[in-house]
Design a protein around this nucleic acid. Structure first.
Lengths: 232, 232
DNA sequence: TGAATAGTGTCTATCAGACAGTATGTC
DNA sequence: GACATACTGTCTGATAGACACTATTCA
């Protein structure tokens, strides 16, 4: 009955974002099984008996990318529970988690042999993803954009060592704007605990070599990196 | 088996915040049934067959407070899925929703006859709430504090008409700080679409009468109302 | 009149953004 | 040297915060 309490199955879906060739990209898998067989979808998996959803997400992340989620920042995007979002019975409700990764060599063939690939976010909704994953992806990207403002998570897009130019490209790519180089430089070097100089430099093909940095200890970014107001 | 996919039951729990007598308070119910029988808990209920969790939350809100959730802003706080958070089987996973309300006459005896009451947030964790509701409440209050900065939701704590002093007290109460009256006044009257003057005034016992305002059309607060940085 | 609250004006430190100018590398 | 990129300095306009001051009511 509709008024009866319902049992459901739970999944954790992952939005794994990275920047490849200057383009914000998301890891998608091709579905092997019905429903939406053959369609692209966010990687994810079912909750197991002894897990929290966070643990499910971390396990899936490891399987898909080989990344250890320990120390990696997984964030809840939200729960998606519309009754018709998944045709299966019992109902499938999902909790979406955002993960941000440095450019990985290639989707690692995890224990799961599914065909995983990076797809530019701008093109992900083109034929349309399975289930309500278009909406979930959009929400996750929104969240990522907001996190760049108030947290130091942008460094995770970079490798262990990076230049301020690298970091600026992360902001420009995710936000889709151009930022003033000198002001950006001052802003991030002034922010407390954001960056830690390594002392080394990275030579560039042409021009002055850039100083290298590591991610600092701070998780919160104060003062925040203000995102240029689009529109009026 | 632990590795098997798990079916669970889902609940939507509500954190209904209001300000009563200048104190941030939350609506709690006394549990009638096991587990945690007799303990205070957040109101909530089970997902039904034809509902999304948002609809479950709206239904529970109406039952508990008589408030129509239409037009009221319900926001997901997060999902709580630790395997041991609820001793019942099948496992109970909950999604928490934040609701903000103007000072209500009294917990309305809804269709549900449970003993509901307002409890100051500062005292809610005193004997400790049922399940992991202490943690959920803390997360929800955090979210509310953040929302005050970037959204116009503070007006919802007030009635349909309010003075700028009323609004300032909302911020001071939720944030637990004192704000500069003249600066606050200028800030909120300058913000676009935050307040709409009614033209009326409310006489005060002593002193100049204050102009009355309605909530404006804007949902986002630009520029944001910066929260004074505590600590260094 | 004084007391109390509402609201305005003004000054200052800080910060974002624009952009000129300097430093350090390759060719 | 030219050129390209990294980085620094400086100015300007906007904003936050402090606080002096004016306005409007009641007793």
């Amino acid at each position: 009955m509709n008024r009866a309490r319902q049992t459901v199955t739970l999944t954790a879906d992952l939005i794994i974002l990275t920047i490849r060739d200057g383009v914000l990209s998301v890891l998608l898998v091709e579905r092997e099984n019905k429903p939406f067989q053959g369609r692209l979808a966010l990687p994810g998996g079912f909750l197991r008996g002894d897990e929290s959803l966070e643990e499910t997400a971390a396990r899936e992340l490891a399987e898909e990318t080989g990344l250890d989620a320990v120390g990696l920042r997984l964030r809840q995007v939200g729960v998606y529970s519309a009754p018709d979002r998944d045709p299966r019975r019992p109902r499938v409700v999902t909790c979406a988690f955002l993960a941000i990764a440095a450019d990985l060599p290639v989707p690692v063939a995890g224990s799961d042999a599914r065909a995983a690939r990076w797809v530019p976010v701008a093109r992900a909704a083109d034929p349309g993803l399975a289930f309500d994953h278009d909406r979930i992806l959009a929400d996750a990207v929104d969240l990522a954009r907001t996190l760049l403002q108030f947290s130091t998570i942008a460094t995770v897009f970079c490798g262990p060592e990076f230049t301020i130019g690298d970091l600026r490209e992360v902001y420009e790519t995710v936000w889709g704007v151009e930022l003033d180089k000198p002001n950006f430089h001052r802003k991030v070097t002034d922010a407390d605990g954001f960056l830690e100089p390594t002392g080394d430099k990275r030579p560039s093909a042409t021009g002055r070599p850039a100083a290298l940095y590591r991610a600092g200890a701070a998780a919160e970014l104060v003062p925040p990196m203000m995102r240029p107001r689009s529109g009026a």
